[in-house]
């Protein structure tokens, strides 16, 4: 996993509540057995005028000019700004894989769905929860300012606007450390292998039915 310390990135707005993971990456693309290559199909049904198929070259497909991420001013965006309950529905990790492959490294929202929120951390995407009023103000600024960029300073736990106004955000200390160092969760857990084994041995005696 890539390290995440500080990012200055172009912001793209997706002004909707309850964006679900079916919308982020439709089911036909879940048939892939790889972790990469989902970016061209992120938001596929909103982004293109036709129905996309797995393995198809997306470059020649007709794009929906009304979909915000197709607007020239948002090309190359690394920060996604959205509303409440982003990433609800299916647990598919293909959703953060698609967003990452598309280029997003941070997502700012009023709230996130739980499973999606966890999946972001596993892939080095920073999900940032900000108060609704701050999100609303950011939407206004993005809309009126072409080339609008935000700084996400993970070390300082703040989103910094171009006008210098900093918005603090909360993040679990352990998750922050993992992101900053790009640590592999499994390696960290396996440091406790002895304790896991001891716990299992006790369980094997007390609850033998769990060990068929």
């Amino acid at each position: 996993m890539d390290k995440f310390v500080r990012l200055e990135g172009l912001v793209a707005p997706l002004d909707r509540n309850n964006v679900d993971t079916d919308a982020i990456i439709p089911k036909q693309f879940l048939k892939s057995i790889k972790r990469s290559g989902f970016g061209p199909n992120a938001f596929d049904e909103w982004r293109y005028m036709d129905v996309g198929q797995p393995g198809q070259d997306a470059s020649g497909r007709p794009k929906n000019p009304n979909f915000v991420l197709n607007q020239p001013r948002y090309q190359g965006a690394q920060v996604l700004l959205t509303r409440a309950n982003f990433g609800c529905g299916s647990s598919r990790e293909h959703a953060p894989w698609a967003l990452l492959d598309f280029g997003f490294k941070a997502i700012i929202a009023e709230s996130f769905a739980d499973i999606f929120f966890n999946n972001c951390y596993k892939n080095g995407i920073v999900p940032i929860v900000l108060p609704a009023a701050e999100v609303e103000a950011l939407f206004k600024q993005v809309e009126t300012t072409p080339g609008y960029k935000l700084v996400v300073d993970l070390q300082a736990q703040a989103v910094i606007r171009p006008d210098g106004y900093g918005i603090p955000f909360q993040i679990d200390a352990f998750r922050k450390e993992c992101l900053i160092n790009g640590w592999d969760d499994i390696g960290l857990t396996l440091r406790h292998a002895e304790k896991i084994r001891e716990f299992e041995e006790k369980r094997r005696i007390n609850q033998p039915w769990l060990f068929a």
Partner: peptide, 21 residues
């Protein structure tokens, strides 16, 4: 009982554990 992402599936397979809040 709850849903998890694929990275967590790998984590459970490898460690029989999950980091949880």
């Amino acid at each position: 009982a709850h849903g998890i992402g694929t990275s967590e599936v790998e984590h459970v397979l490898a460690t029989q554990c999950l980091l949880q809040k």
